[in-house]
Each structure stands twice: as C-alpha cells, then as structure tokens.
Simulated scan of single mutants.
Amino acid sequence: MAENLKPVALLLLLLNLCLYTILAIIGGWALNVSIERGFIIGPELRLPAHFHPIFFPIGNFATGFFVLFSLIAGVVGIASAMVGFNHLRFWNYHSLQPAAALGLLAWALTVLAMGLACQEISFDRRNAKLGTMEAFTIVLTVTQFFYVLAIHGGSHGPVPVERHAGNLP
C-alpha cells in the first residue's frame, strides 16, 4: 500500500510545485505594482479618507491581505515541495516528519489565503491576474490537502526503534 501512493504523491508534488511557483510569481508582481503605484504623500498633504494600510491600486480592500498571505503561502509551498522531493527519494519514517510538518504548514497558509480569495471574489472589483491567483489558491487548497494525505497514507508500516548499545541487556 505504501509504495502504491508514491507515484500519486509525486504527481501531486509536481503539480503543487508548479502552482505554488506561479502563485508566488503573480503575488510578487502584485506586490511590485502596489509599491510602484502606491500613495506618495507630501509633507503638507493628508491621507485620503478611506486609506487602507495595505493599499493595492489593482483590487479592492481585501487585495492587500490576499496578496501578502498568498505570497507567504507560495514561498512556504515551494519549500514544502523541496522537502517533499527529499521524502520521496528516501520514503521512510525519518524523512516523513519534516515533509508532513511543512506540508501541513503550507496547507494551513493556503487555506488562509483561500479564505481571503473568497472574500476578494465577493467584493467583485479585481484584476484578471488576481482572478488567476484566486483560482490557483483555491485549487492549491485541495491539491495540497491530498498531497499531505498521500504522504501520510504511505507512512503506515513498522516504525523503526533505535536502540543504543549501552541499553541492551
């Protein structure tokens, strides 16, 4: 059973790596647009009445939080994929622990970003690239969850017990 899930985990891992990379690239683009087109306030001017601390000129009020959390989820997801490749290479109990922990962390951050994506979708005013980013976030929530289930499903088996020479009778 454990070896049957290895190709499934590899396929999900490759898909997640591609999607997280695209998510991080679009998130970086959106952050760059925000920095370049943000407010420039002179010493004699006041802030606008509805100034948002995380201002994104290409979306709505949820865009700033969505982009930041998606960018963080993308970077952690890419790190999760790198650790996941190491786990697929060895496919043992000791390599499962970091892969599962980082996979769950990436999934949790992706779920948070997905909630913000749903909030942004409900506000309705957004850019086409942000729409792509929202779709990738929603798809990644599902595929990352199945990836974590696949590597946990492959872990059922005997757990190695380490014994030191000084403790033997």
Rank of each mutant, 00 (worst) to 15 (best):
F66E: 14
A81G: 13
N92M: 09
I72L: 15
Q97E: 11
M82F: 07
L104A: 13
V83P: 00
L105I: 15
L96R: 03
R89L: 14
S70V: 02
A100K: 06
L104M: 15
I78S: 04
R89Q: 04
N92H: 15
S70C: 12
V83A: 04
A106G: 09
A81D: 14
H87I: 12
H87G: 08
G64Q: 09
L96W: 02
S95I: 00
L68T: 06
V75P: 00
A79L: 10
I72Y: 12
F65C: 07
L68I: 13
F66H: 15
G64N: 07
S95A: 15
L104C: 10
A79P: 07
L88V: 10
S80F: 02
V67R: 02
V83C: 08
N92E: 14
L68V: 13
M82S: 07
A101N: 08
A81W: 00
F66R: 05
F90L: 15
L105T: 14
L71T: 13
H94L: 14
A106M: 06
S70L: 02
A81P: 06
A99T: 05
L68Y: 01
G74Y: 01
G84S: 14
L105Y: 14
Q97F: 10
S80T: 03
G64D: 05
V76P: 03
R89M: 00
L104N: 15
L102S: 07
T63D: 06
L71F: 06
V67D: 11
A79C: 10
W91L: 11
A100N: 08
L105W: 09
Q97Y: 01
G77T: 05
G84P: 07
Y93L: 10
G77F: 01
N86Y: 08
V67K: 14
Y93K: 05
G64R: 04
A81N: 15
I72N: 00
A100E: 11
W91H: 08
Y93H: 13
L105C: 11
